[in-house]
């Protein structure tokens, strides 16, 4: 990367106050309309070449953030910029050339590959759709992609059922790489895999990032994995980002009480430390996103909650350089 190129300093992806609400019907006969506040005023940016980790418990909106960012969900409000250009509001047709540059890898490698399509065709499909290659050239690209993700190029003629979970995830990665994207949303890419296979996929993603200068938004619920792979980390709770910082400051000096509680909940793989460690568990459950708590959404479970927390939404501010947090108490 050259220092003079101004696009290096501007963020590759910028998300501003992104909000996504889903309308649902609840009650036994669906007689009541309700709104799921899946994502509320989320802002972050992703620098070129970095990995931004997005963590949170199930239902916190982290996957919705990834899908809305890619315009796979239309946002309720808010804006997304790619290389400084707004992509929110673009038509499907206008979006098409950008889709080539923004790809996604999903959690479940079993349901994301068509069982009736050979692996080679699955990987080649983006090439043909974006008219990037055809015929012999496409075949060569497919072989090279399979090789890149550690699979035998001869596997191109096989079907997904012939592969294990880890191998299928490699195929999904090859498919995401096919049209040479710059930005990849990794939506829990290793959660469905066994521990020994997880490590293989993490290493593969890191190698590919280095080789092809990729930028990742890495969505996961496993804090140890996120710490391992990310440069910066954003923590989500119930549709909002509560804290975002370079990973060292986030893990060594968490400011938000939720981040702190989350870190204390992670078991340490060392029996002696586990026995000595303080075991503070946060009480209660994540409330429903249909009627999220007023003010700070964490306040009913927060050990530090005080007067303004239940009615004033905490401001998203930079508490230390590069370390953002939304909390009244810090």
């Amino acid at each position: 990367m050259s220092q003079t190129d101004s696009s290096n300093r501007a963020p590759l992806v910028r998300v501003e106050n992104l909000t996504k609400h889903f309308s649902v019907r609840i009650g036994a006969y669906g007689e009541t309309k309700a709104t799921v506040h899946a994502l509320d005023e989320v802002s972050f940016d992703v620098q070129r070449g970095e990995t931004l980790g997005l963590v949170g418990e199930s239902g916190c909106g982290k996957s919705t953030a990834g899908l809305t960012l890619l315009q796979l969900h239309r946002p309720t409000s808010g804006k997304v910029y790619f290389e400084g250009n707004e992509v929110t509001g673009l038509s499907e047709k206008e979006m098409r050339p950008l889709r080539r540059r923004m790809q996604i890898i999903f959690q479940d490698p079993y349901s994301t590959l068509s069982p009736r399509m050979t692996v080679g065709n699955a990987i080649g499909e983006p090439l043909w759709l974006h008219e990037l290659a055809s015929g012999k050239e496409a075949q060569e690209r497919i072989s090279r992609l399979l090789n890149d993700v550690g699979l035998n190029p001869a596997f191109a003629f096989r079907y997904p059922h012939e592969f294990s979970g880890g191998q299928r995830q490699r195929v999904c990665i090859a498919r995401a790489l096919a049209c040479e994207p710059e930005f990849i949303v990794c939506d829990e890419p290793i959660s469905a895999l066994d521990v020994s296979i997880q490590a293989q996929i993490i290493n593969l993603l890191q190698d590919l990032q280095e080789e092809y200068d990729l930028t990742y938004l890495f969505i996961a619920h496993d804090l140890a994995v996120v710490r391992h792979i990310s440069d910066r980390v954003a923590v989500m709770y119930l549709g909002r980002v509560v804290e975002m910082a370079p990973k060292e400051s986030l893990f060594d000096n968490p400011l938000h009480p939720y981040t702190n509680a989350l870190l204390l909940s992670v078991p340490v793989p060392n029996p002696r430390q586990e026995r000595q460690r303080e075991h503070i568990v946060i009480e209660g459950n994540v409330p429903s996103a249909i009627s999220p708590p007023s003010g700070c959404r964490f306040h009913p479970r927060c050990p530090l909650a005080f007067e303004p927390c239940d009615h004033v939404v905490p401001e998203w501010r930079e508490a230390e350089p590069g370390h953002w947090v939304a909390c009244h108490a810090v």
Partner: peptide
């Protein structure tokens, strides 16, 4: 070796099976 931890080194690669 395949297990990333909250305390370990971060710049390293995971060892894999």
């Amino acid at each position: 070796g395949a297990l990333p931890s909250l305390a370990g080194e971060t710049g390293t690669r995971l060892t894999t099976i």
